[in-house]
Simulated scan of single mutants.
Amino acid sequence: MKKKILFVCLGNICRSPSAEAVMNGFLKVNMLDDEFECDSAGTGGWHVGERADSRMRTHAARRDYDLTSIARQFNPKNDFDEFDLILGMDSQNVSDLKGMARTSEDLSKIKSMTDYCSRYEHYDSVPDPYYGGADGFELVLDILEDACDGLLKQIDK
């Protein structure tokens, strides 16, 4: 049975779909893609049904990541039961997720994405690039690559 990982940000159009794509890329390279399934969601529902932000898709594509996910809102009724690990992109996302948790088991599945960083340890969140320039999208990808590398090392033990 596949282990399931859910990446969560605010709107599910920049950070969480990127985390999903980066992790899928890392899993494929390490031939673990048949052992894990990744998805992403947003705590808010403003962008439900939309593709990832075009700027995020462009920056990710330059690194050979394909952002194919369609935005959806986190569903506490299903997602806590469906996923083994739920990763929030920033402290607000983590706090929102914890507020939706029904049980201590739900709470134990929620972690912060940056907990897995080794090179970008000074970041306590994956910053939202939506209102910024190109540098913000690149920084998001740098942090996510670091975090996904750390996550892979953690789950491969």
Rank of each mutant, 00 (worst) to 15 (best):
residue 78 N to D: 08
residue 94 V to T: 11
residue 105 E to A: 15
residue 107 L to T: 09
residue 98 K to F: 11
residue 100 M to D: 10
residue 77 K to L: 13
residue 104 S to Y: 07
residue 94 V to S: 02
residue 72 R to T: 05
residue 118 S to R: 13
residue 96 D to E: 14
residue 108 S to L: 05
residue 101 A to T: 08
residue 93 N to C: 08
residue 90 D to S: 08
residue 79 D to S: 07
residue 92 Q to G: 13
residue 111 K to T: 02
residue 80 F to R: 01
residue 89 M to H: 02
residue 83 F to V: 03
residue 119 R to C: 12
residue 76 P to F: 08
residue 70 I to L: 08
residue 119 R to L: 15
residue 75 N to R: 01
residue 108 S to V: 06
residue 66 D to T: 02
residue 78 N to I: 03
residue 95 S to L: 13
residue 89 M to Q: 06
residue 90 D to K: 11
residue 97 L to T: 06
residue 91 S to C: 06
residue 120 Y to A: 07
residue 74 F to V: 04
residue 78 N to H: 10
residue 110 I to Y: 07
residue 120 Y to Q: 05
residue 71 A to V: 00
residue 76 P to H: 11
residue 109 K to L: 08
residue 100 M to N: 11
residue 93 N to K: 05
residue 99 G to A: 12
residue 121 E to K: 15
residue 88 G to P: 03
residue 118 S to L: 10
residue 74 F to P: 00
residue 108 S to F: 02
residue 99 G to V: 10
residue 103 T to I: 03
residue 81 D to F: 08
residue 65 Y to Q: 04
residue 111 K to S: 10
residue 73 Q to W: 04
residue 92 Q to E: 14
residue 76 P to N: 09
residue 108 S to A: 15
residue 94 V to R: 02
residue 90 D to P: 07
residue 93 N to F: 05
residue 81 D to V: 01
residue 99 G to D: 14
residue 80 F to Q: 01
residue 83 F to Y: 15
residue 73 Q to C: 06
residue 100 M to A: 13
residue 67 L to F: 05
residue 99 G to F: 12
residue 74 F to S: 01
residue 69 S to K: 04
residue 100 M to L: 14
residue 68 T to G: 04
residue 98 K to T: 13
residue 88 G to Y: 06
residue 118 S to Q: 15
residue 96 D to M: 13
residue 96 D to K: 10
residue 118 S to I: 12
residue 84 D to P: 03
residue 88 G to Q: 04
residue 117 C to A: 15
residue 79 D to A: 07
residue 106 D to A: 08
residue 115 D to P: 03
residue 72 R to W: 07
residue 78 N to T: 09
residue 81 D to N: 13
residue 121 E to M: 14
residue 113 M to R: 01
